[in-house]
Design a protein around this nucleic acid. Structure first.
Lengths: 134, 134
DNA sequence: CTCGCTGCAAACCTTTTGCAGTAGG
DNA sequence: CCTACTGCAAAAGGTTTGCAGCGAG
């Protein structure tokens, strides 16, 4: 799970500059489990820092994803979604409300195909969440 | 797996019109396992029917996906990829060459979360394919 | 001071839509 | 004939890039 203070410190150590927009973006991600799009992160950031641009949010999210501090999900075909928890885990995607729920790690990951060096496994359950079953 | 003749017959039965572009698109998908994007399908179609437009290819692919004759994959964040095999199955995605390989069905699908009505499960293995391990 | 970061605007790419003409049934 | 389908062109989003100026270190 993304911890703003830790990532911030790590960035500082590597000579990246800690600016007000970055601080705000880091705070917006801190402890987040909602898998927001870049636009949703921007909206959240702008509640307190109205002058931050989309460009800055997007490039910062990409930067964090490249560093492995967050994950970029391809679950939503319309737009990238960012996962503040970079540790690989499964997701449950509600087909009705669109919510993406994190799942606790399962013992016994599925085995990959022969002749293929697996670096990570991605499991998505699609269906109806508790609230949307009627 | 997509069978052009069958889908074509089914469309005709339901009153959809069988045009030359559709015939060509159906043929391009027939027996395909390469998970092409709409632009790749267009290129393939144009080898024999140079006047077919992107619009027609894209709307036809969407139409087939809505009917369940093909599947629209969200694996590639940059663009939609279409799977001529609409029966749910796992995929192995090579991080180097980008190839998407179909996997045979596994016994014992992973169990979904409690309180969630699962309609389908999507498993992706990411890593290096046989050819790209080196 | 120096450059890395920012914000703006414009470019880019994929996908979607409006519309007049064409052709399948 | 009727109207669904086609191709074009333009719009609509999301993402990426060029650039001048600011400001963290």
């Amino acid at each position: 799970m993304f911890r703003a203070a830790e990532v911030l410190e790590e960035c500082r150590r590597e000579g990246l500059r800690i600016t007000a927009p970055r601080r705000a973006i880091f705070e917006a991600l801190d402890g987040d489990a909602s898998h927001p799009s870049a636009w949703e992160v921007l909206a959240r950031v702008r509640r307190r820092h109205p002058r931050v641009s989309f460009t800055t949010v997007y490039t910062t999210l990409e930067m964090l994803a490249r560093r492995g501090a967050i994950a970029k999900l391809a679950i939503d075909p319309e737009r990238a979604r960012f996962d503040a928890n970079p540790v690989p885990h499964d997701h449950a995607v509600c087909e009705r409300c669109g919510r993406i729920e994190d799942l606790p790690p399962r013992g016994g990951r599925p085995r990959g195909p022969r002749g293929f060096r697996v670096s990570r496994v991605h499991v998505e359950f699609h269906g109806l969440c508790r609230g949307c079953r009627g």
